[in-house]
Structure formats: structure tokens, C-alpha cells
Design a protein around this nucleic acid. Structure first.
Lengths: 139, 139
DNA sequence: TGACATAGTCAGAGTATCGAACCATATTGT
DNA sequence: ACAATATGGTTCGATACTCTGACTATGTCA
């Protein structure tokens, strides 16, 4: 079993738990929409940056942000730093969704830490952060 | 940054490298097809098991296996243990594709080990394997 | 033997994704 | 200054993926 695939299980489990909690709480966004929504920063994020971080093309990100905007989770505002760009920002409903996601993420992570033990969990985090240096071209 | 998301970067990087190598070598399967192909065991695997491991429904797996079968990467054979079931088995071309994937996986993993150091990489693997116990319902 | 469960497929519809082409604004070189 | 080029984003068209629901065939169990 290669390390990449071993990384897949926690990732998938976390995403499934977060999505289930979102649905439970009445949020209607899809997985693909959620992946973008979770990456919108506190002061807004450009479409292109969302696309890079989520691993999709700009076109796909545009499409998904359109859905999220129609559903009322985000809004587009001009980017004061560049007239070509627009910032995607969370609406109140978007913030509520992200808040639930963060809460569930913390819960799941606590379960994992309990399973691994504090020390091993901390080591895991450090190793993953270092691995990110060579696996995330957009960090 | 939550642990689930930290797991996403290596997973995505590994998949991208493997897919790129496959394309380079003239293989034509898509990402979704590749995810199934990579999970076909040496003696064949049932559609339902492929679906569970890849995280899609049986219907989707049926669809993807149809594509893979048309493309000549797999074949369906009766499961001697259960007349309802059929085993998906790799064809010669399928084996060739998987062989390349395994080779690239090993190369990428070697890069990661070089970056992390032997000891930390081994610890990472152990932690991920233990995490799998609570995040992979189908192990 | 009948009721129920399981493995797989088919059909239909919705969602996601990409490549190509395009517009508007920035940046760069001369 | 200004042409050439790069960048951020969008639209369009085509394709791939995925799901739900309904169905057949076989297995299991009381």
C-alpha cells in the first residue's frame, strides 16, 4: 500500500463526515461546491486561487462559484488590487456552513488524536506539513 | 489546517504523477477509471468491492468497468464462488498499466522518504496505517 | 418453499470537468 | 507613449462522472 493511497483514507473520511454534518444542518451544497467553499479565505479569495487549491481549472471554479452564488453562500466583489480580478467572499450563510465544517473537522481530528495518541498525532501532523512542501505546488 | 486536508496534498500529488506517467506511456484511461483499475486485485475483484474501495456506487463502478473493458484493460469472468457475481480481472494491457503505476508510486514515495528522512517516513507510514483502522470502513 | 438479502445491471437525469475561444485589465520592452 | 504579451476571469460546447430508482438473477434462512 503506497503512502499516497494511505493518505486517501483519512482525507475521504474527513470529507464524508463534514459533508454529512452539513447536510444534517440543512446545507445543500455538493461535494465539489464544498471543496471550493472551504477554501474561501476570511477576506475573500480569487477564483484562480480557489481553482488551484481545489485542483480544478478556472472554468470549473467559475461554474461552481456561480452555483454557490445562486445558492447564497458566496458573493463576488471587485478586487481593489486588480480591476481584472474579483474576490469571492462568504455570505452569512456561507460563514455558517464553514463554521459547522470547522467544528466537525475539530471533532474528527480529536477522534484521530485519541486513536493515535498525542505524541504520534503531533508527529503525523509535522510529517504531513513537511510533505506538503513537496506535494502542494500552490502553498 | 486540519489533518484531513493535510492528507489531501500527498494523495493528489501521487495521483497526478501516476496519471501523468500513464499518459506519457500511451495509456488512455481517465482518473476515475484509473482509480478503479488500481484496485483490481491479482486474482480479480468484484464490482461491489471496487466500488467500496474507490468510494463510488456500484452503478458508477459498473459504468467505469464497462469503459475499461471496452478499452481492453480488464475483462469480466464468472466468480466461481457466487453465480451472481463476476470478477473484474486485469488484461495484459491492464497489467502493463498497473506496473507503470506501481513503478511511479515507488519513485514518488522514494522522493518523499528522501525529503522526510527514513525514520520519519516510517513513522508516517505507521501513523497512517493506524489511522486507516478508523477511517477505512472497508479495509 | 417463501421471504428476504445480495451482486450486478440498465435507464435517466443532474453535476462536474475540461479545452478552446474570448474580453478586459496589467505588465513589459522599446 | 504604445505595441506586444501576460494575466484574471468568463462563456460555450462537449464529455465524463455520478447518483437514484427500478430491475434481474442468485443466494440465504426460517
Amino acid at each position: 500500500m503506497n503512502l499516497g493511497l494511505l493518505c486517501y483514507f483519512p482525507y475521504r473520511a474527513m470529507e464524508a463526515r463534514v459533508m454529512a454534518a452539513g447536510e444534517e444542518a440543512g446545507f445543500t451544497f455538493t461535494i465539489a461546491q464544498g471543496r471550493l467553499l472551504a477554501r474561501v479565505g476570511p477576506d475573500g479569495t480569487r477564483i484562480g486561487d480557489l481553482a488551484e487549491q481545489a485542483g480544478v481549472t478556472k472554468q470549473t471554479a467559475t461554474f461552481l462559484v456561480n452555483q454557490l452564488e445562486k445558492a447564497g453562500y458566496v458573493e463576488r466583489v471587485p478586487d481593489p488590487a486588480d480591476a481584472r480580478a474579483r474576490l469571492v467572499r462568504l455570505s452569512e450563510a456561507g460563514w455558517a456552513g464553514v463554521a459547522i465544517a470547522r467544528k466537525v473537522e475539530a471533532e474528527v481530528e480529536a477522534e484521530w488524536v485519541a486513536h493515535l495518541g498525542e505524541a504520534d498525532a503531533a508527529a503525523l501532523r509535522r510529517a504531513l506539513e513537511r510533505l506538503r512542501e513537496v506535494t502542494d505546488p500552490y502553498q
